[in-house]
Design a protein around this nucleic acid. Structure first.
Lengths: 133, 133
DNA sequence: CTGTATCCGACGTGATACTG
DNA sequence: CAGTATCACGTCGGATACAG
Protein backbone atom coordinates (compact mmCIF):
# COMPACT_ATOMS: atom_id res chain seq x y z
CA UNK A 1 0.00 0.00 0.00
CA UNK A 2 0.95 3.65 -0.57
CA UNK A 3 2.87 5.49 -3.27
CA UNK A 4 5.16 3.04 -4.95
CA UNK A 5 6.54 2.74 -8.43
CA UNK A 6 6.55 6.47 -8.91
CA UNK A 7 9.60 8.46 -9.84
CA UNK A 8 9.54 11.85 -8.18
CA UNK A 9 13.24 12.41 -8.47
CA UNK A 10 13.10 13.99 -11.88
CA UNK A 11 16.21 11.99 -12.60
CA UNK A 12 16.68 10.59 -16.10
CA UNK A 13 15.24 7.09 -16.40
CA UNK A 14 17.59 4.56 -14.91
CA UNK A 15 18.02 1.01 -16.17
CA UNK A 16 16.65 -0.76 -13.10
CA UNK A 17 14.84 1.79 -11.01
CA UNK A 18 14.36 0.79 -7.42
CA UNK A 19 10.72 1.61 -6.92
CA UNK A 20 10.84 1.39 -3.16
CA UNK A 21 12.90 4.59 -3.14
CA UNK A 22 9.72 6.47 -3.84
CA UNK A 23 8.35 5.97 -0.34
CA UNK A 24 11.59 7.14 1.17
CA UNK A 25 11.71 10.26 -0.97
CA UNK A 26 8.16 10.96 0.08
CA UNK A 27 9.17 10.77 3.72
CA UNK A 28 11.78 13.48 3.14
CA UNK A 29 9.24 15.62 1.33
CA UNK A 30 6.88 15.13 4.24
CA UNK A 31 9.45 16.54 6.61
CA UNK A 32 9.85 19.63 4.45
CA UNK A 33 6.10 19.94 4.29
CA UNK A 34 5.43 19.65 7.97
CA UNK A 35 4.32 22.73 9.78
CA UNK A 36 7.56 23.88 11.38
CA UNK A 37 10.66 22.11 10.03
CA UNK A 38 11.35 24.59 7.27
CA UNK A 39 11.16 27.52 9.66
CA UNK A 40 13.61 25.90 12.03
CA UNK A 41 16.02 25.13 9.21
CA UNK A 42 15.87 28.72 8.01
CA UNK A 43 16.53 30.01 11.50
CA UNK A 44 19.59 27.81 11.81
CA UNK A 45 21.17 28.78 8.49
CA UNK A 46 23.27 31.57 9.95
CA UNK A 47 24.65 29.68 12.89
CA UNK A 48 23.69 27.62 15.95
CA UNK A 49 20.83 28.69 18.16
CA UNK A 50 19.56 27.84 21.62
CA UNK A 51 16.19 26.31 22.31
CA UNK A 52 14.42 29.38 23.62
CA UNK A 53 16.18 31.51 21.06
CA UNK A 54 14.48 29.48 18.36
CA UNK A 55 11.22 29.59 20.21
CA UNK A 56 11.30 33.36 20.31
CA UNK A 57 12.29 33.67 16.64
CA UNK A 58 9.52 31.41 15.43
CA UNK A 59 6.41 33.27 16.36
CA UNK A 60 3.58 30.95 17.28
CA UNK A 61 5.37 27.63 17.76
CA UNK A 62 4.61 25.81 20.99
CA UNK A 63 7.29 24.36 23.20
CA UNK A 64 6.05 20.91 22.44
CA UNK A 65 6.16 21.37 18.67
CA UNK A 66 9.62 22.92 18.75
CA UNK A 67 10.89 19.93 20.70
CA UNK A 68 9.26 17.44 18.35
CA UNK A 69 10.41 19.30 15.25
CA UNK A 70 14.00 19.44 16.49
CA UNK A 71 13.90 15.75 17.37
CA UNK A 72 12.72 14.93 13.88
CA UNK A 73 15.44 17.00 12.27
CA UNK A 74 18.01 15.44 14.57
CA UNK A 75 16.81 11.96 13.73
CA UNK A 76 17.21 12.65 10.02
CA UNK A 77 20.74 13.89 10.58
CA UNK A 78 19.91 17.44 9.56
CA UNK A 79 20.57 19.05 12.93
CA UNK A 80 22.96 18.40 15.79
CA UNK A 81 22.02 18.82 19.43
CA UNK A 82 24.80 19.66 21.87
CA UNK A 83 24.14 19.91 25.58
CA UNK A 84 26.20 22.09 27.89
CA UNK A 85 25.76 20.59 31.37
CA UNK A 86 25.67 23.96 33.09
CA UNK A 87 23.13 25.45 35.42
CA UNK A 88 20.85 26.52 33.97
CA UNK A 89 21.23 24.00 31.16
CA UNK A 90 22.09 25.21 27.69
CA UNK A 91 21.39 23.33 24.46
CA UNK A 92 22.59 24.41 21.06
CA UNK A 93 21.10 23.27 17.80
CA UNK A 94 23.08 23.55 14.60
CA UNK A 95 22.62 22.50 11.00
CA UNK A 96 24.76 19.63 9.81
CA UNK A 97 26.34 19.64 6.35
CA UNK A 98 23.39 17.55 5.29
CA UNK A 99 21.01 20.12 6.73
CA UNK A 100 22.79 22.96 5.00
CA UNK A 101 22.55 20.99 1.76
CA UNK A 102 18.83 20.55 2.19
CA UNK A 103 18.45 24.24 2.87
CA UNK A 104 19.45 25.04 -0.70
CA UNK A 105 16.59 23.39 -2.60
CA UNK A 106 14.27 24.47 0.18
CA UNK A 107 15.31 28.08 -0.29
CA UNK A 108 14.73 27.71 -4.03
CA UNK A 109 11.23 26.48 -3.29
CA UNK A 110 10.68 29.31 -0.85
CA UNK A 111 11.80 31.85 -3.42
CA UNK A 112 9.50 30.40 -6.02
CA UNK A 113 6.60 30.44 -3.60
CA UNK A 114 7.33 34.02 -2.65
CA UNK A 115 7.61 35.35 -6.18
CA UNK A 116 4.48 33.55 -7.34
CA UNK A 117 2.43 34.36 -4.29
CA UNK A 118 0.24 36.91 -6.12
CA UNK A 119 -0.68 34.42 -8.83
CA UNK A 120 -1.51 31.69 -6.36
CA UNK A 121 -3.57 33.91 -4.10
CA UNK A 122 -5.34 35.30 -7.13
CA UNK A 123 -6.12 31.79 -8.33
CA UNK A 124 -7.43 30.88 -4.88
CA UNK A 125 -9.70 33.90 -4.79
CA UNK A 126 -11.01 33.19 -8.28
CA UNK A 127 -11.65 29.57 -7.40
CA UNK A 128 -13.35 30.40 -4.14
CA UNK A 129 -15.64 33.07 -5.58
CA UNK A 130 -16.49 30.83 -8.54
CA UNK A 131 -17.61 28.13 -6.13
CA UNK A 132 -19.10 30.57 -3.68
CA UNK A 133 -22.87 31.03 -3.84
CA UNK B 1 -0.93 33.56 16.07
CA UNK B 2 1.17 31.27 13.93
CA UNK B 3 4.49 31.70 12.09
CA UNK B 4 4.82 35.39 11.39
CA UNK B 5 7.78 37.64 10.99
CA UNK B 6 9.90 34.87 9.59
CA UNK B 7 11.66 35.03 6.28
CA UNK B 8 11.71 31.67 4.61
CA UNK B 9 12.29 33.00 1.13
CA UNK B 10 16.03 33.01 1.40
CA UNK B 11 15.88 36.31 -0.45
CA UNK B 12 18.41 39.00 0.43
CA UNK B 13 17.13 41.21 3.23
CA UNK B 14 14.64 43.73 1.90
CA UNK B 15 14.22 47.21 3.25
CA UNK B 16 10.66 46.78 4.48
CA UNK B 17 9.89 43.10 4.56
CA UNK B 18 6.21 42.29 4.58
CA UNK B 19 6.05 39.81 7.40
CA UNK B 20 2.59 38.55 6.59
CA UNK B 21 4.00 36.91 3.45
CA UNK B 22 5.47 34.26 5.67
CA UNK B 23 2.16 32.58 6.36
CA UNK B 24 1.36 32.52 2.67
CA UNK B 25 4.68 30.98 1.75
CA UNK B 26 4.07 28.38 4.41
CA UNK B 27 0.75 27.49 2.83
CA UNK B 28 2.51 26.79 -0.47
CA UNK B 29 5.10 24.69 1.30
CA UNK B 30 2.31 22.81 3.00
CA UNK B 31 0.83 21.91 -0.36
CA UNK B 32 4.16 20.53 -1.53
CA UNK B 33 4.46 18.60 1.68
CA UNK B 34 1.05 17.03 1.64
CA UNK B 35 0.89 13.36 0.98
CA UNK B 36 -0.06 13.30 -2.71
CA UNK B 37 0.32 16.67 -4.45
CA UNK B 38 3.92 16.14 -5.50
CA UNK B 39 3.12 12.77 -7.02
CA UNK B 40 0.27 14.21 -9.04
CA UNK B 41 2.42 17.08 -10.28
CA UNK B 42 5.12 14.65 -11.36
CA UNK B 43 2.61 12.52 -13.22
CA UNK B 44 1.33 15.54 -15.11
CA UNK B 45 4.72 16.87 -16.20
CA UNK B 46 4.69 15.03 -19.50
CA UNK B 47 1.21 15.98 -20.58
CA UNK B 48 -2.44 15.90 -19.52
CA UNK B 49 -3.92 12.83 -17.89
CA UNK B 50 -7.38 11.57 -17.13
CA UNK B 51 -8.69 10.92 -13.64
CA UNK B 52 -8.46 7.14 -13.61
CA UNK B 53 -5.22 7.30 -15.52
CA UNK B 54 -3.72 9.22 -12.62
CA UNK B 55 -5.32 6.87 -10.15
CA UNK B 56 -3.68 3.90 -11.81
CA UNK B 57 -0.29 5.60 -12.05
CA UNK B 58 -0.22 6.61 -8.40
CA UNK B 59 -0.19 3.33 -6.60
CA UNK B 60 -2.08 3.45 -3.34
CA UNK B 61 -4.02 6.69 -3.66
CA UNK B 62 -7.72 6.46 -2.92
CA UNK B 63 -10.36 7.95 -5.18
CA UNK B 64 -11.24 10.41 -2.49
CA UNK B 65 -7.69 11.61 -1.96
CA UNK B 66 -7.06 11.97 -5.69
CA UNK B 67 -10.16 14.14 -5.97
CA UNK B 68 -9.20 16.30 -3.02
CA UNK B 69 -5.60 16.64 -4.17
CA UNK B 70 -6.64 17.66 -7.67
CA UNK B 71 -9.13 20.18 -6.25
CA UNK B 72 -6.40 21.71 -4.14
CA UNK B 73 -4.01 21.98 -7.06
CA UNK B 74 -6.77 23.44 -9.20
CA UNK B 75 -7.61 25.98 -6.53
CA UNK B 76 -3.99 27.13 -6.41
CA UNK B 77 -3.93 27.57 -10.17
CA UNK B 78 -1.40 24.78 -10.64
CA UNK B 79 -3.65 22.45 -12.60
CA UNK B 80 -6.49 22.90 -15.05
CA UNK B 81 -9.53 20.66 -15.14
CA UNK B 82 -11.32 20.30 -18.47
CA UNK B 83 -14.50 18.28 -18.76
CA UNK B 84 -15.57 16.60 -21.99
CA UNK B 85 -19.34 16.15 -21.72
CA UNK B 86 -19.33 12.78 -23.41
CA UNK B 87 -20.72 9.48 -22.28
CA UNK B 88 -18.96 8.17 -20.39
CA UNK B 89 -17.60 11.46 -19.06
CA UNK B 90 -13.98 12.33 -19.59
CA UNK B 91 -11.97 14.79 -17.51
CA UNK B 92 -8.45 15.87 -18.31
CA UNK B 93 -6.06 17.38 -15.82
CA UNK B 94 -3.10 19.39 -17.03
CA UNK B 95 -0.37 21.46 -15.44
CA UNK B 96 -0.63 25.20 -15.92
CA UNK B 97 2.45 27.32 -16.60
CA UNK B 98 2.43 28.06 -12.91
CA UNK B 99 2.33 24.35 -12.14
CA UNK B 100 5.18 23.63 -14.51
CA UNK B 101 7.14 26.38 -12.81
CA UNK B 102 6.56 24.83 -9.41
CA UNK B 103 7.64 21.47 -10.74
CA UNK B 104 11.20 22.75 -11.19
CA UNK B 105 12.13 23.51 -7.56
CA UNK B 106 10.13 20.45 -6.54
CA UNK B 107 12.22 18.28 -8.82
CA UNK B 108 15.35 19.83 -7.37
CA UNK B 109 14.14 18.90 -3.91
CA UNK B 110 13.27 15.40 -5.08
CA UNK B 111 16.72 14.96 -6.57
CA UNK B 112 18.35 16.13 -3.38
CA UNK B 113 16.22 13.76 -1.34
CA UNK B 114 17.03 10.90 -3.65
CA UNK B 115 20.76 11.41 -3.69
CA UNK B 116 20.97 11.85 0.07
CA UNK B 117 18.63 9.03 0.93
CA UNK B 118 21.42 6.78 2.21
CA UNK B 119 22.69 9.43 4.63
CA UNK B 120 19.23 10.19 5.94
CA UNK B 121 18.25 6.58 6.40
CA UNK B 122 21.57 5.91 8.03
CA UNK B 123 21.04 8.79 10.42
CA UNK B 124 17.58 7.50 11.23
CA UNK B 125 18.88 4.05 11.99
CA UNK B 126 21.64 5.42 14.18
CA UNK B 127 19.21 7.62 16.06
CA UNK B 128 16.69 4.84 16.53
CA UNK B 129 19.20 2.29 17.77
CA UNK B 130 20.81 4.88 20.08
CA UNK B 131 17.41 5.49 21.66
CA UNK B 132 16.34 1.88 21.43
CA UNK B 133 16.51 -0.28 24.54
C1' DC C 1 16.46 26.93 30.69
C1' DT C 2 15.06 22.87 28.47
C1' DG C 3 12.48 19.86 28.32
C1' DT C 4 8.48 15.73 29.42
C1' DA C 5 3.58 14.25 30.38
C1' DT C 6 -1.16 14.50 29.67
C1' DC C 7 -5.45 15.80 27.77
C1' DC C 8 -8.27 17.03 24.00
C1' DG C 9 -10.14 18.85 19.86
C1' DA C 10 -9.29 19.37 14.87
C1' DC C 11 -7.90 17.55 10.81
C1' DG C 12 -6.15 14.12 7.29
C1' DT C 13 -6.75 9.69 5.38
C1' DG C 14 -8.82 5.34 3.99
C1' DA C 15 -12.80 2.17 3.18
C1' DT C 16 -17.07 1.67 1.47
C1' DA C 17 -21.25 2.63 -0.77
C1' DC C 18 -23.82 5.36 -3.87
C1' DT C 19 -24.80 8.75 -8.18
C1' DG C 20 -25.03 10.94 -12.95
C1' DC D 1 -15.84 7.11 -15.99
C1' DA D 2 -15.62 10.48 -12.55
C1' DG D 3 -16.92 11.68 -8.93
C1' DT D 4 -19.83 12.55 -3.93
C1' DA D 5 -21.36 11.05 0.84
C1' DT D 6 -20.59 9.03 5.01
C1' DC D 7 -18.19 6.94 8.66
C1' DA D 8 -14.38 5.52 11.35
C1' DC D 9 -9.82 6.00 12.88
C1' DG D 10 -5.34 7.77 13.73
C1' DT D 11 -2.29 11.45 13.95
C1' DC D 12 -1.15 16.31 14.58
C1' DG D 13 -0.99 20.27 17.11
C1' DG D 14 -2.09 23.44 21.06
C1' DA D 15 -2.70 24.28 26.09
C1' DT D 16 -1.41 23.33 30.40
C1' DA D 17 1.04 21.46 34.15
C1' DC D 18 5.09 19.60 35.92
C1' DA D 19 10.35 18.10 36.26
C1' DG D 20 15.60 18.14 36.20
Amino acid sequence: MRPENIDVTGLPPRPSPDHSDCRAVASVLARVGDKWSVFVIMMLIDGPKRFNELKRMINGISQRMLTLTLRGLERDGLVTRTVFPTIPPRVDYELTDLGRGLAEPVKALGQWAFTHLPEIEGARNDFDTRNAE
